[in-house]
Design a protein around this nucleic acid. Structure first.
Lengths: 148, 148
DNA sequence: CAGTATCCCTCAAGATACTG
DNA sequence: CAGTATCTTGAGGGATACTG
């Protein structure tokens, strides 16, 4: 690939997608957005990414039409970032990566974060405590969505 | 993320997956492998990637258990790279990226490569010629798999 | 053909300080 | 709090020459 080759030149949709969200952080930002994170500091704390990089990635995701920046309703002078329809359409991508990772990259007993459904009906990724038998320990009122 | 944080430290399967296949080339190599490409030069020609980078990515994909390198049966001294089960399990990831890209990153009439099924039953990615009505032009004996 | 060995360069990423 | 500005570093990637 010469450096002049833009992602919009790529005739393959896979390559073009990778050109847009194929860096180390973008898809993790999207994952967090599915989690309901929408504020700069929360992304920053969740990811541990440098602030300037985060600012740049958020800007690029907005340019790509994956996120929209809109003023928060508490009248704060700043923005919140929410998924557009195009962004929400990335859910199968994130899910496929999650399932592959769970299956291939974790040893059987190894703890990992999972996708659970909260009372609001919104899926959220959390570290899920398990007992010795591998059973998930959650409050009684938590709904669990089986994703296999 | 401190630099000492290895992908195997990540508690999130999404992040860990990205740590393994989240660079510019690995998934494209996997995509080509689904295409039936398994020789060094063919990957190189298909991707246009530098040889040293390709060698490095192939090595890492083998280490990750996504490809196996095995001697070619024509007795050539060199290797061929084929997908393991773990590698084949990446199909949903590649497919999800493909579908998202087709949907979000291409203008309606814009030509792009597609996934078609050959007579052998093996799906292959090809640039598919279309006429002015958007109809796909293929030899009569080609089966087309609808992926939507 | 299938790589390896070098060299080089750009950019992603991090750290830190600063601002409205 | 939500960024911007600046500096530095290192890894990713490219080009080319070389080798069994």
């Amino acid at each position: 690939m010469t450096n002049s080759a833009h992602s919009s030149d790529e005739p393959c949709p896979v390559a073009r997608s990778i050109g847009v969200i194929g860096d180390r952080w973008s898809l993790l930002i999207v994952r967090d957005a599915f989690d309901g994170i929408h504020r700069f500091s929360d992304f920053q704390r969740s990811l541990g990414v440098a602030r300037n990089i985060l600012a740049d990635r958020l800007r690029r995701l907005v340019e790509a039409g994956i996120l929209v920046a809109r003023p928060t309703r508490e009248g704060g002078a700043y923005q919140e970032y929410v998924l557009t329809e195009a962004g929400k359409n990335l859910f199968p991508v994130v899910l496929a990566l999650r399932q592959w990772g769970e299956r291939q990259l974790f040893t059987p007993g190894e703890p990992h974060s999972e996708l659970i459904e909260t009372k609001t009906g919104k899926p959220v990724q959390r570290m899920v405590p398990r007992n010795e038998d591998g059973e998930v320990l959650l409050p009684d009122d938590t709904k669990v969505r089986k994703l296999s």
